[in-house]
Design a binder for these strands. Structure first.
Length: 463
DNA sequence: TTCGAGTTGAATGT
DNA sequence: ACATTCAACTCGAA
């Protein structure tokens, strides 16, 4: 909503405005095509399945009514279908392969400057500018109670986006940009250790092209980090998931999704609720889930930590459930990236080394040994000594009482024994992988499959 | 068919 | 601070 307001303000500065039309696209558009005497309509291409269907229908209808349609790829650096075509009809499933494909393509085009003025004919009349019928929706209209909202740490809109963009990717900050390596940034610093440009990229407040070319400018003539860990690499990951999502049916679910491993996840409402509501009893996990709900943003590695915990690591709940929670709470929630990353973390697709598991106790200690992050987001644990802040249930009762927080009363006991369940779950992953090999051979032709499976692979399952 | 590599693990050693 | 082990996946190139 803030993004819409900011856009509307910018347009009004040029003598135009934003009209937010409410209703069924077919009905609403037919009406305005007539009243506004529309000759041509353009929009940004959208690869999400519902959008593809919607846009196809609008396009067909427009052309029937004699309205010319022209669409553009601007949300991503590359058009997903162009990449798929270049890769002989399939989406690359590794980033290395993805990079080799785009290396054969033209570089992303440079962004155009925003217009400084509009032609006289494009400006609106006073009555059109002051009519409130098609104004931006209010919070009330979308059933949000303003007093229930937390502080807006990352306000929407192009103005905010450019402010952040120019701060993080400034010449003064070039050394940081050039040495940026994502795995070395901290998931649990008190202030974000990354750019937090993702919400702005998601809503189109800043363009990936702008970011791409700004990085080129800052990289040129100096030594700098490389994909996949560099900032440039972060943009490529976004492209990678957009490409996979655009060309894979049922990308946001396990069933009938050809890239997704079929895993018999449990359905435990209590475990899911404990994770969602930040009461797993693991302070590192609960602090992250608290930050997610309060701020609408958490670091990428924090997402890894809680996603692994919910799925293959500890709770053995479906990644689709986690995806729903992220979709609701993340400011940067993006359909393609959300699904892709949940599959990655649950070792359902893209990533397969399921025996590499994040510890809900050990991982956070590496970057925040004294637990400042936990103390910030879970203040009732704040008085625990460093030694116990990540595993307060191990503190002697006297220490718990001194900290003013008795485990089991004031803060939950750990929902699982990580050492035990993570090992059990690795065994379940092993079974799911073996089952997948027999049930769903991906690339082998059927004849090859029948020839080789019985002897070589079946024996492995028996073991 | 084989083999090397894969954005970001943990525990235990030196 | 760095190396090894753990137990061993899939993708894609050769």
């Amino acid at each position: 909503m803030q993004s819409l307001q900011d856009l509307d303000t910018s347009l009004r500065g040029l003598g135009s405005r934003l009209f937010v039309l409410r209703g069924e696209p077919g009905e609403v558009l037919t009406k305005v095509w007539e009243t506004w005497d529309v000759k041509m309509m353009t929009w940004e291409e959208d690869t999400e399945p519902d959008a593809v269907i919607r846009d196809e229908a609008v396009k067909e209808m427009a052309e029937r009514k004699g309205v010319t349609v022209e669409t553009f790829c601007s949300h991503t650096l590359y058009r997903p279908e162009d990449i798929v075509a270049k890769n002989k009809g399939t989406a690359p499933l590794t980033l290395v392969k993805f990079q080799s494909v785009i290396a054969m393509m033209e570089k992303p085009s440079k962004p155009l400057d925003a217009p400084q003025s509009l032609e006289e004919a494009s400006r609106l009349s006073v009555s059109e500018l002051s009519d409130t019928k098609d104004d931006i929706p209010t919070l009330k209209e979308v059933n949000v109670v303003e007093s229930e909202l937390h502080e807006s740490k990352f306000p929407g809109g192009e103005t905010e986006a450019l402010k952040r963009f120019n701060e993080k990717l400034s010449t003064e900050n070039a050394a940081w940009v050039r040495t940026f390596e994502k795995p070395l940034t901290s998931p649990n610093s008190l202030e974000p250790s990354t750019t937090v440009l993702s919400p702005y990229l998601k809503f189109g407040c800043v363009s990936p092209r702008m970011m791409y070319w700004r990085l080129v400018k800052l990289y040129t003539g100096a030594k700098h980090s490389q994909p996949p860990v560099s900032l440039h690499g972060q943009l490529l990951w976004r492209e990678f998931y957009y490409c996979a999502a655009a060309s894979t049916p049922n990308f946001s679910r396990m069933e009938d999704n050809p890239v997704c491993r079929q895993i018999p996840w449990d359905k435990d409402e209590d475990k899911l609720a404990a994770w969602t509501e930040a009461r797993t009893g693991f302070p590192y996990i609960d602090a992250i889930m608290t930050q997610l709900r309060r701020d609408g943003w958490i670091h990428h590695l924090a997402r890894h930590s809680v996603a692994c915990f919910l799925t293959r690591g500890d709770l053995w709940q479906s990644w689709e459930k986690g995806q729903e929670v992220f979709e609701e709470l993340l400011l940067d929630a993006d359909w393609s990236l959300n699904a892709g990353n949940w599959m990655w973390l649950s070792a359902s697709a893209f990533f397969h080394q399921y025996w590499k598991c994040y510890s809900p106790v050990a991982f956070g200690k590496k970057t925040d040994p004294s637990g400042e992050y936990i103390r910030k987001y879970l203040p009732h644990l704040a008085k625990f000594p460093d030694k116990f802040i990540y595993q307060p249930w191990e503190a002697p009762l006297a220490v718990q009482k001194a900290a003013g927080c008795v485990i089991g009363q004031d803060y939950p006991r750990p929902i699982v024994d990580h050492a035990i369940v993570s090992k059990e779950n690795m065994g379940r992953m092993k079974v799911a992988c073996a089952a997948g090999k027999v049930a769903a051979p991906k690339k082998n032709k059927l004849e090859n499959y029948f020839k080789k499976e019985p002897k070589a692979k079946k024996r492995k399952i028996d073991e």
